[in-house]
Design a binder for these strands. Structure first.
Length: 640
RNA sequence: CGGGGUGUAGCGCAGUCCGGUAGCGCACCUGGUUUGGGACCAGGGUGUCGUAGGUUCAAAUCCUAUCACCCCGACCA
C-alpha cells in the first residue's frame, strides 16, 4: 500500500498496517480524557516485578500497549547540567538521563526508565541461569544471627555486615551474601544424592556497610545481586557446575553488550580453589588486572604471579658491616643515602597475622601483597603492626627492622630475597643499618612464599612476556567453595551406599546494578547513553515534531502502529522544541530514533536513525514497520 | 578512621573575607507568539541559607557544637 501524498493526515490512513484493534482504543491524549486511566489499571493488579515481553523473544507477539509510554504521562526528569557529585561517566549519565536518583550516600532509587533497563538485565540473567539449569529462589533479607554463628561468620564478617535487633533483642543481619541461608535451606530440603546436583539462585538485594560508597551504583551499600550456589556430590560434579556457570556468565555479559575480561582471582575469605572474576576494563575500576599480551594469562593483582628475574648480583660477597644511618628510614631516603637502587634493600615490615607478629621481607622496590601474605601465612586477618609492637619485636623504632636478628620472630621471605647479594637492611637498632648482607650466611630463609604484587612489565608466570596492567570493574565472580559451609553447617545427603556425605559447593555472583553501570561506561558518547538493543529501556524513541492537531493525530497513529506491532516505544509527545526533544533522545539513548515531522507531513517519509550512527534514513510509511523490525533484529543480533 | 573540600530554590552556582534581612542561569507555573538540534515576550519565587546554640539593635555572613555529602587514602564475600 503506497502513501497518498495528497491525504497523508487522514485518520485511519494506516489501518492496513495496524495490528489487532489498535484504532479502537481510546486516546488518552484527548484533552477531555482525564489522566487517571493508567493509575486505576496500575492499582488493580501486581505491577512489580513485571516481566517484559515473552522470554526469549525481543519483539512482542501482540501489542500489549499501554498509554503510559508517552512523555507527557511518563516521567523522564533529565538534567541539563551535570550533577556536581557525579565523578564518573556512568553515574553522571544515569543521573542526567533520569534513570536513578540518590536517596543518600550509597543508596539509590530507580526511576521507571532506569528500572526498565535494570529489568532487562535481570531478564537476561534469569534466562541464562535457567538455561544452565539453575533454580530460582527468593531468600529473606533479614537473616538471624544463629545462621551466621553456625558458620562462624557472625564474628568473621566484621563491621561490613549490618546488624540489627528486633524489639525482643533478637539479633539479625541484613544479608550481605547468602551462603549460610542457602546451605541451611538445602539442608532442610534435600536428603539424597538423587536431589543433586542442585544449583539454587536468587536475584535479590544485598546490604554491605561499605566504608566508602562511591561512583554511584558502582559501589553502594544496598545493591541487587544474582547469587547462585551449587551443590554436588564430588569434585567432578562441581567442575561441571562451575563450567556451566562459566559459560552462562559469558553469555550474560555478551548479551548485555559488555566486553568482560575473565581473570584468575583470589578466593578471599571464602576459601576454595578455582576462582574467576569477570572484569570490565575501565579507568574507574577499583581492581588492578595483569594481562599477558602473548598468552592467555590474566589475573587480578591480588593473585597475579610473576617470574622473578632479578639475577644474583656479581662480585665477591662483602663483609657484613654496620652503617650509621641517622634518621634514614624510608626506602627513598635509604636509596639517596647509599646512592643505589631500591632493589638493593631488604624491606622488612612487621605484620600482625591474627594478632601474632610476623616479619615480611621483600625487595625494597616491591610492594607487599597483603592478600598473598594472608594466604601464605594461613591467617584470617593480616594488618601492619602498630609502632609499639614493632619496637617490641625488633628492639628499634619503626624503619630499622631487618631479618638479621637474634630475636625470635616468624619471618617470611619473598622468593626474590634468595637472590639478594650484598644487600642493605635495618639493623634492628636505632639509626643503624647493615650493609653487605647475604642470605644463608647472615640470616636463614626459614619460610619462602610469593608475597609481593606483580606490576606492569613483570614477566608472565606462564610465558615470560612483559605483562600489561589495566584497571577493571568486577561485575561477576565465580568460584569453587569446597566443603566450608556444608561441613561447618553439617549439610549431608545419603550417597548410593546409604552413607551421609557432605556435598561440595560452588558460589557464583553477579552485581546487577554494577553491570548496568558497566554497560553505560562502555556505551556512551558526548551526548549521552547509547544503549545496546538488548538492555535498552525501550527499543525505539518516537519524536513528534507536529504543529497542528492534525499533525499530532498523524504522529499518534505512527505511535499506535509501532506499539501495536509489539515494539517497545517511548513517545515524546511534549509540546517542546525539536532541539529539546533531540537532546533528550540522545541523552537517554534508545537504540532507534524515529522522527515524524515535516518530511512526513510533506513527503510521507518517516525519519529513522540509530543512536549509534549519525546518518538518518528516510523511509516511506509502507516500508516503515518492516524497516524498524529489521533494525531491531540487526541490533539485537550484535549482542547474542 | 586520617587528609582535603562543599552544604544558599528542582539542577548548576554567586553572595560569606568586610553583618543591614537573599540573588543569577537553567528548570518549573500562567498567558501569548513559536517549533527540524537545548526558542521568545509578559507575569510568577516555589528558600526553616544543612541543624542547634551563642554574639549583636541586626547573622547566609562572626563564634561554638553537630549533621550530611563529595574527593584522596586506609578497607573491601
Amino acid at each position: 500500500m503506497g502513501l497518498d501524498p495528497h491525504h497523508p493526515l487522514r485518520r485511519g490512513h494506516f489501518g492496513a498496517c495496524i495490528h489487532t484493534g489498535s484504532l479502537k482504543r481510546p486516546r488518552i491524549s484527548s484533552p477531555e480524557k482525564p489522566p487517571y486511566q493508567f493509575i486505576l489499571v496500575k492499582r488493580k493488579g501486581p505491577v512489580y516485578p513485571v516481566r517484559v515481553g515473552n522470554t526469549g523473544t525481543h519483539i512482542k507477539q501482540s501489542g500489549a500497549r499501554t498509554r503510559t509510554m508517552r512523555f507527557t504521562r511518563y516521567l523522564v526528569p533529565t538534567l541539563r547540567e551535570d550533577p556536581s557529585d557525579a565523578a564518573v561517566t556512568s553515574h553522571r549519565l544515569m543521573l542526567r538521563a533520569g534513570l536513578i536518583r540518590k536517596e543518600s550516600a550509597g543508596m539509590y532509587l530507580y526511576l521507571p526508565l532506569g528500572f526498565r533497563a535494570l529489568r532487562k538485565i535481570i531478564d537476561i540473567v534469569r534466562e541464562e541461569m535457567e538455561r544452565a539449569g539453575a533454580l530460582e529462589f527468593l531468600m529473606p533479607e533479614l537473616t538471624s544471627a544463629d545462621l551466621w554463628r553456625e558458620s562462624g561468620r557472625w564474628e568473621a564478617m566484621g563491621r561490613e555486615m549490618i546488624r540489627i535487633k528486633d524489639r525482643n533483642g533478637q539479633e539479625y543481619a541484613l544479608a550481605p551474601t547468602h551462603e549460610e541461608a542457602f546451605t541451611a535451606a538445602v539442608r532442610s530440603i534435600v536428603s539424597s544424592y538423587r536431589d543433586l546436583p542442585l544449583n539454587a539462585y536468587q536475584i535479590n538485594t544485598k546490604f554491605r556497610d561499605e566504608i566508602r560508597p562511591r561512583y554511584g551504583v558502582m559501589r553502594s551499600k544496598e545493591f541487587i545481586m544474582k547469587d547462585a550456589y551449587s551443590f554436588d556430590m564430588d569434585e567432578e560434579g562441581l567442575e561441571r557446575s562451575y563450567q556451566a556457570m562459566r559459560r552462562a556468565y559469558r553469555n550474560i555479559f555478551s548479551r548485555c553488550g559488555i566486553d568482560t575480561i575473565p581473570v584468575e582471582a583470589d578466593t578471599g575469605s571464602m576459601g576454595g580453589s578455582d576462582s574467576e572474576e569477570f572484569m570490565v576494563a575501565s579507568e574507574v575500576g577499583e581492581e588492578v588486572l595483569l594481562l599477558c599480551p602473548d598468552c592467555a594469562y590474566k589475573a587480578n593483582q591480588e593473585r597475579a604471579e610473576y617470574k622473578r628475574t632479578e639475577p644474583k648480583g656479581g662480585g665477591p660477597a662483602e663483609e657484613l658491616r654496620v652503617v650509621d644511618t641517622p634518621n634514614v628510614k624510608t626506602i627513598d631516603e635509604l636509596a639517596a643515602f647509599f646512592k643505589c637502587g631500591a632493589e638493593r634493600f631488604l624491606k622488612s615490615l612487621i605484620y600482625l597475622a591474627d594478632g601474632k607478629p610476623v616479619m615480611a621481607v621483600v625487595p625494597g622496590d616491591r610492594e607487599i601483597n597483603e592478600v598473598k601474605l594472608k594466604n601464605a601465612l594461613g591467617a584470617l586477618e593480616v594488618e601492619l603492626a602498630p609502632d609499639s609492637v614493632v619496637e617490641d619485636v625488633t628492639g628499634a623504632p619503626v624503619g630499622f627492622a631487618g631479618p638479621v636478628t637474634k630475636k625470635k620472630i616468624r619471618a617470611i621471605f619473598d622468593p626474590a630475597i634468595s637472590n639478594a647479594h650484598n644487600a642493605i637492611t635495618g639493623a634492628n637498632e636505632r639509626d643503624r643499618h647493615f650493609a653487605g648482607v647475604n642470605p644463608e650466611r647472615d640470616f636463614q630463609i626459614t619460610e619462602q612464599a610469593d608475597i609481593t604484587s606483580a606490576v606492569k612489565g613483570d614477566a608472565c608466570p606462564r610465558c615470560g612476556a612483559a605483562m600489561n596492567e589495566r584497571k577493571g570493574i568486577e561485575v561477576g565472580h565465580i568460584f569453587k567453595l569446597g566443603y566450608k559451609y556444608t561441613k561447618s553447617m553439617n549439610l549431608t545427603v545419603l550417597d548410593e551406599s546409604g552413607k551421609a556425605v557432605h556435598p561440595i559447593m560452588g558460589c557464583y555472583g553477579i552485581g546487577v546494578n554494577r553491570t548496568m553501570a558497566a554497560v553505560i561506561e562502555q556505551h556512551n558518547d558526548e551526548k549521552g547513553i547509547v544503549w545496546p538493543m538488548t538492555v535498552a529501556p525501550f527499543q525505539a524513541h518516537l519524536v513528534a515534531i507536529a504543529k497542528t492537531d492534525e499533525e499530532t493525530a498523524a504522529v499518534d497513529e505512527i505511535y499506535d502502529m509501532l506499539s501495536g506491532a509489539g515494539i517497545d516505544v517511548l513517545y515524546d509527545d511534549r509540546r517542546a522544541s525539536a532541539g529539546v526533544k533531540f537532546a533528550d533522545a540522545d541523552l537517554i539513548g534508545m537504540p532507534i530514533r524515529v522522527t515524524v515531522g515535516k518530511s512526513y507531513f510533506k513527503d510521507g517519509e518517516i525519519e529513522v536513525k540509530l543512536r549509534s550512527e549519525s546518518e538518518a534514513k528516510r523511509v516511506p510509511k509502507d516500508e516503515f514497520l518492516g524497516h524498524i523490525r529489521g533494525l531491531i533484529e540487526k541490533e539485537w543480533g550484535r549482542y547474542t
